[in-house]
Structure formats: structure tokens, C-alpha cells
Amino acid sequence: MQGDSGFCEGLCVELSSDAAAIRCALEQVMASGPVLRLAPDLSARLQLVLAEVLNNVVEHAYVLNAGRIRVSVTVQPAGIECCVCDSGCPMPDGRPPTGALPDWSEGEPPEGGFGWFLIRQLTSGLHYRRQGMCNELRFRIDLN
């Protein structure tokens, strides 16, 4: 694929909304040619962010039913562009969570609540929209 900003390569993976499918999809993305050519720290960031996003889709968007998820990943000179689409429930208030860290005031580490913090820390250009019955989350993982 050739874009305005120079050379880029992409892939698209479709999966069902369950934990086993997430594992297989992540393995497929990480084993793809464009991702294999990335620096190890960049591919690790991609894997962590995609795992968090996909698990959120399964746990929250498809809480009432099962469905399909489409993930597209495009490696460009400036970074990795990602898009995750599903037809599950929309995000509350029509936007992703703020990514605030959970409250540790009780002394015990909280059970969860770090996903959106990590997603927001490791990405840029995070954008969510609901079109008809489809959720679309776009983000970029910058090279620098």
C-alpha cells in the first residue's frame, strides 16, 4: 500500500468476541510481516494496547451478546495506525474513559482499572465514534 506520507503496510483481522479469539488475533497481528519488522519495544506497545482494547470490547461492548470485531493495523513511517470496530454496546457517554488511575487509598492494589490509563499513555490521536450500530476506535502508536 502506498500513502501520501510514504511507504506503509497494513493488515486486517476479524475475530469473534471471546478470549481465545483475542489470543489468536494478537498472535496473527504480531506474526505479520509489517509488525515483525518493528523495533521490539514498539511491537510490545502495540500488543499491550491491542490486548487492552480487545479485552474491553469483549467485557463491555459485548456484555449482552457475542459478536465480531475487526482490527486493522497499518505501519507507516511515523507510527502504527490502528482501528478497532465492533457492533456491541456503545461507550458510556459516547466517549472512551478518561484513563484516570484507580484509587489506591485502601492500601491494597485495585482489581483492574488500569486498561484505559495504559491505552491513553501509550497512544496518541485516540478517537472514538459510534456510527449506526458500529463502534470505531482509532489510535496511533508513534515511533518516537
Rank of each mutant, 00 (worst) to 15 (best):
E81I: 02
G79A: 02
E81W: 10
P90L: 09
C89D: 12
P102Q: 10
C85A: 14
P109W: 07
C83Y: 00
C82I: 07
D86S: 12
G99Y: 08
A100C: 05
S87L: 03
G88C: 09
G112T: 07
P102T: 09
C82T: 07
G99I: 07
E81M: 12
C89Y: 04
E111Q: 11
W104K: 01
P102A: 11
S105P: 01
M91W: 12
E106G: 15
W104C: 12
P102H: 06
R95P: 04
E108S: 07
P90V: 08
E81L: 15
T98D: 13
E106H: 08
C85S: 13
D93M: 10
G107F: 07
E106Q: 14
V84M: 06
P96C: 10
P90Y: 08
C89T: 02
W104T: 09
P90N: 11
D103V: 05
C83V: 15
G107Q: 13
P110D: 11
C89A: 15
D86Q: 07
C82G: 06
L101Q: 00
W104D: 01
G107P: 02
T98W: 00
E108P: 00
D93T: 03
C83L: 15
G99F: 08
P110W: 05
T98S: 13
P109M: 14
D86I: 00
G113E: 02
I80N: 04
G88R: 04
G107E: 13
C83A: 15
G79F: 06
T98A: 14
R95S: 11
R95W: 00
G112P: 00
P96R: 03
G79C: 00
S105W: 08
P92A: 15
C85K: 14
G107I: 03
G113F: 03
R95Q: 13
C83E: 15
R95Y: 00
P110E: 09
C85Y: 01
S87A: 13
S87V: 00
M91K: 05
E81F: 12
D93I: 01
G113C: 05
P102I: 06
P109G: 10
A100S: 11
D93R: 14
P96D: 09
